[in-house]
Amino acid sequence: MRPARASRPPVGEVRKAPLIHRAAFRCIRFNWFIALAATDGSVPQSNQYQAASAAIIYKGHHKLERTRYVSGRVTTPDAELNAISCAVRLAVKRANCQHIMVFTDSMGSAHRAVDPGVHSGQAFSLSVCRVLQEWFEADDLCRITFVYVPSALRWDIHGEAHKYVTELKVRVGRRKTDNSIDALRSRVAHSVLDSWNSTFQDPTYRGSEFLELQQPDGRPLQPSYLNGGPWLSTFGHSITEFARVCPCITGHAPIGAYYRRFKINEPHGCTCGAALQSRQHILFRCRDRYSVHYPRFLGDIASFMKYNPTAFGFNRDPSGVG
């Protein structure tokens, strides 16, 4: 994969390690025109430790270089990109080869490594592009291949790099620690989400009629910005379904109990004959509706909406959406 430049378009290869037969890999290791670079990044779960990056360079069975270092407070893609950048620079400098094969478990970071555009690790990408451009110009036969290796495989030299980087544990000290843009953005987002979850516990903020639901692990369902949030993602991002489920959950659906509560001149009773058309009645007792067990999870509500396409919708619209 070559970095973009005016005179030559990007080219490259992406392979998966399981597809490389052991015999073929042995041939690659005996080819002195090929340098093998294993890279990995590690971001500890505890905020007390810094992220780490590692790169191991082989030529044949000879280990040319092995290095690991702290990357600061960064995201996992940042740490992976840092490792790839280091590996490419070391391979070009030390290996004296025509082909560099980089083994990584982060293809997203591999693509970013040769992308000089604006992103969190742009400085590392620019250094990779600069080194590769000089290397390509020196010999038209030079090429680089990024090979995807799932970290869980602990495969050969990549497994060695994984073990090497995860052994490095460096605490965050009093000195200034490097932070990437993505890491700072993630920290702010999680801080806002924590504040949102805390505020959501207050009924005056959430709303007294808000339908309390649970996560599969039994914890109360909390708001989130990830993938559109838990409510929207459950309904497949369908605007039609969400337009009905939203008033159902918040207690603002156009039903009898809502009309009575806000003194709206509309019937309070249910079409099945019940005196009051409440949310509980519609979900559990109405003879005109498909019955589901107690709706502890959003999936239960989604199932109910599927079998009752006009429930909690406006009567004037056949699709149930006002």
Score class of each variant (00 low, 15 high):
I20H: 03
V131S: 15
G12W: 03
H61E: 09
P116K: 06
L298E: 08
N265L: 11
T76I: 14
A138T: 11
G12A: 06
P230W: 02
L232K: 12
I34F: 09
L141M: 13
G228T: 01
P254G: 07
H158D: 10
L64I: 12
R22T: 12
V118C: 04
H21W: 00
A243R: 08
K306G: 01
G218E: 07
F25E: 07
S208V: 13
I84K: 08
R171G: 14
I239V: 14
C142M: 12
K169M: 13
Y69C: 00
V321Y: 08
H111Y: 13
T310I: 14
I57T: 00
I56E: 04
W231L: 15
V88G: 05
G12L: 04
K63I: 09
G322W: 13
S180A: 07
N82F: 09
L168N: 07
T271I: 11
G251V: 02
M305S: 15
R175E: 02
K63R: 15
T39M: 12
H62P: 00
T310Q: 14
T76H: 13
R22P: 05
Y258P: 05
Y294V: 14
G117N: 08
G60T: 03
D217G: 00
S278A: 08
R94E: 14
G117P: 01
F25R: 05
D182N: 06
C248N: 09
E167M: 05
Q214W: 11
Y225D: 11
C129A: 08
R130H: 15
R244T: 08
Y259G: 10
V88T: 07
G173W: 05
R171T: 13
N179W: 14
H62W: 11
V172F: 04
R261P: 01
R143D: 11
G269D: 15
A54N: 05
D78W: 02
P309V: 09
I249N: 09
T145G: 06
H268W: 15
S195N: 06
Y259A: 14
A152G: 01
L221Y: 12
I56F: 06
G236P: 00
R26K: 10
T234F: 06
S53H: 07
F235C: 10
N197K: 13
K169D: 08
R5E: 04
E241A: 15
D182A: 13
T39V: 15
K263G: 10
D300G: 07
A189D: 12
R285I: 04
H158L: 14
G41T: 03
F210H: 14
L19C: 05
V149C: 03
H252T: 09
A35W: 00
R143H: 10
S46F: 03
V147W: 09
V131D: 12
V118G: 03
R260E: 14
